[in-house]
Design a protein around this nucleic acid. Sequence first.
RNA 1: GGGCCCGUAGCUCAGCCAGGUAGAGCGGCGGGCUUUUAACCCGUAGGUCCCGGGUUCAAAUCCCGGCGGGCCCGCCA
Length: 490
Amino acid sequence: MSSEVDARRDIRRKLIELGLNPYPHTLKGRATPVRDIVKSPTLGSNVGVAGRVVGIRRHGGLIFFDLVDDGHRIQCSISRGDSGQEVFEFFDKFINLGDFVYVTGFLYYTKKGELTISVRDMQLLAKALRSPPVKWGHRVLDPEVRYRKRYLDIMMSPQVRRIFEIRFKTIEEIRKFMWEKGYIEVETPILQPIYGGAAARPFKTYVWALEAEWYLRISLELYLKRFIVAGFNKVFEIGKNFRNEDIDVEHNPEFTMMESYEAYADYNDIMRLTEELVSTVARKVLGTDVVEYPVGKDLVKISLSPPFKRVTIYDAFREFTGVDVEALPDEKIKEYLERYSIKLAGGYDRGRAIVKLFDRIVGREHLIQPTFVTDFPRSSSPLAKPHRNRLDLAERFELYVGGMELANAYTELNDPELQASYFREEEERRLMGDMEAHPFDWDFVEALEYGMPPTGGLGLGIDRLVMIYAGVNSIKEVVPFPMIKPREFD
RNA sequence: GGGCCCGUAGCUCAGCCAGGUAGAGCGGCGGGCUUUUAACCCGUAGGUCCCGGGUUCAAAUCCCGGCGGGCCCGCCA
């Protein structure tokens, strides 16, 4: 089974015996990025290139091989005649697929017209003891291998590499966008004595120094608002949240959020900010704000150009189901809950029931093109400010794209007395068994008591945004190292 | 939490339904080949058939239990 590894260990040993370090500290010369060489090749010029050997084609006295450097491939050739006996035999005896090498030589085009380096000298930079599992450019297929050994998935498949290029470029462009809007990027604690800002089951941990049980944050919200209380007008943070819940194609227990808070803004301002961000970042990252996203068996064109559609949650029900939920008596709503086998932890609550029904019936299926769903029932949104025109609603919106909730935002609640009473409601539900009810955060209420200006806040799911940008419908495709059970080493 | 599917060589898979010597292609190794590019030709090595139990003269194959993975449903973003 390990015969291949054994053979390569032999080569490693032989090299050492010959006084050739299989893992040298430095290159013998200068390496130019393959990206630059491919972009504007100067024929006949002497170049030095470093990379991984991902393909070898032997033709007797001539060998073609492919190097990949930072995702860019270039072909090299070694021949007895042009490269010399010594270089030829070094490659033949000591180089395998997967090795990192440094080569110098001259650029030319082969008969088939491919840009190639005619190698004159080479240096082994790092010996690989294992061969890549697939040929370069071909996808690793076993999903378990892909997720467990993601480095192989990325190494061998440019399509997979591209997804992560999109991911990290997206994060970079979001930062630039927010900076340009005058937001300051801040940091808040990941370990917290009281978690909050969302409805979710937390991860618990123990702080030895304080002899106390703490939590990993489930959102960034309550600490960012403390920054607004502190007097910063525009803050944002990009960071990991942790929710101790199930793993599926839209959820990973550890996921990345961008949250922002802006003093003197309301949720209408935040809608404009959000649609501008989503389209601007798309254009920066992809060069376009029109994407294709798999919905069921179809690839659907999605336009991310502002303005996005705006619809209240009640109008969305009317539009997509023909049902006037607003006018339904509680008994009817309970019937619907029954029909869709939705259980409400913590007892029946009209507002929260309506939101659940919305998630189930409307959101996933109908909201493919970017849509702001607004004005949620107040009782479902304990951190949002009641609607200026209707006390039973909250000034809240969710952004849906591709049937996924991408963002959640409020005109933030800044009345400490109301906030305390909403926390009390949550506490009651918690006592009635709702594991995900918000815990009462006294310290946060006290902060509000010192005065928080009118504020608009946004939470944006980065992983899901990247899914939309990359056109993939599983969060595992965009999380570099998705959560998976560890395996014993064999 | 519930359901469905999958697990055989480094990789992709066949063999399982209908029990009877463990197979192919690619990759590896050896040989040939000086313009190939998923190179080609010849040869060769390589297996805990996921694990444990049961049925049977005989289990990769049938049955039970477990482990791992994927997908769907429920819940959350």
